[in-house]
Design a protein around this nucleic acid. Structure first.
Lengths: 220, 220
DNA sequence: TAAATATTTTAGACAAATCTAAAAATTATT
DNA sequence: AATAATTTTTAGATTTGTCTAAAATATTTA
């Protein structure tokens, strides 16, 4: 069993290391967690003894495969709770993270399994981030243009072309933002414009030109 | 803001004092929380400084009105989470307490308000205990005989006459147990027998004699 | 490459929540 | 009422996670 502090360090190191690929510096961890570098060194020592990290003095830290497994399970819990808060309790997209930071440390495997089932095994959280399954497997999210989707496809907006102020203004008006869910209702053959529904609420038509500037991840 | 430990002590003292009526001994707290009496003394000192308890050396502890308010809010959170776990996640009646012990310490007022709304403002938890409302008010639960209810009444079993083994065996067979929900579908004029539905599942008839030996709290 | 700067670690301190052992106060027993 | 038993408190120690200040190491710059 890990303490809440240990879990937070592990999760941070996993994230900062780009899912375990890169080394992480003591300073970057301390900046992210708003603790002092000396506290980070202490915790790194502890987690290294527990074989969750690799560490060589002055050389940065790597997460071990055991550490990775644990970190992924914490992230899984975090994202499942986010879905619950957003979909069931109707929290705003930007309110869920803070609360999920607390809920993610509740440790009860059955609870998470049942929550997962209750939410119908969601693949992504309200921010569009993928939810690892029980075995820690993460569906690689492939980012594609909204214009590439077909009828009945559902996706989450992961990015928009932010070079054009007019486009941003327009997207804001029709309430398309990063993290929102879009369902394609129709693709008009004539001009490849799309009839879409945004966040299960407003249905609008958008031109192919606009759809090309919205990057999404498919979720069905 | 209270720590998890402080919250647990406060809740325990509130419960052991019979909702703030009686004095609580150091030993009884230590027995309940499985800590040493010396640890209890330390915590009592701390909570007394915070004006949540009254305490005179060697004379036992009383909860203050501020302490009572906080304790009731913790109990509210606990019981609302129990309803969520039981009704939505389909946990068993006897599994919810342990998990709610963790969830009750999540501190976010909006979360509890939204959870309350989502659960449709339940008045009792799966054990039949009343859920305080946002203002800390608790509907006094009046324990009556099941035989006193009328058509469409809904209740929670709070007690059964356990002097008769045959009765217990029968109740077990038709799955009536403490904490289960019973809806009265019909009252037969002829012999005052009842047609009831148990836990939204099995519908059965029971005699007036049986209904007189089941104590319940009305919840509608 | 030597000096300056930045990063990381060590050493020692502190607060919170617990513990053990012993002292003080209360309650029960003879 | 004196003694025994129990309860409660105090005193001092321990663990966890943090901190500051200083030392050690690494990196950058002139």
């Amino acid at each position: 069993m890990l303490s809440i502090s240990e879990e937070n360090y592990l999760k941070t190191i996993f994230n900062l290391s780009d899912s375990g690929k890169k080394q992480v510096s003591t300073n970057s961890i301390s900046k992210f967690l708003k603790t002092k570098p000396s506290s980070v060194t202490d915790m790194i020592k502890k987690l290294t003894v527990k074989k969750l990290l690799y560490h060589k003095k002055y050389k940065g830290t790597n997460i071990s495969s055991n550490g990775k497994k644990l970190a992924i399970q914490i992230i899984r819990k975090h994202r499942l709770w986010e879905v619950f808060l957003y979909e069931k309790l109707k929290f705003k997209w930007d309110e869920v993270h803070k609360i999920a930071e607390e809920l993610e440390h509740i440790s009860n495997e059955k609870l998470i399994d049942k929550l997962d089932k209750y939410l119908k095994y969601p693949k992504i959280d309200p921010h569009g981030d993928p939810i690892p399954n029980k075995d820690g497997k993460i569906d690689i999210k492939q980012i594609i243009k909204l214009s590439n989707l077909s009828i009945k496809d559902v996706c989450i907006v992961s990015n928009v072309n932010d070079e054009d102020g007019n486009l941003l203004e327009y997207l804001n008006k029709i309430k398309i933002h990063i993290g929102c869910k879009i369902k394609v209702f129709d693709v008009i053959d004539f001009d490849k414009s799309l009839e879409i529904e945004i966040d299960s609420r407003n249905k609008v038509f958008i031109s192919n030109r606009v759809a090309e500037n919205i990057l999404v991840t498919k979720i069905n």
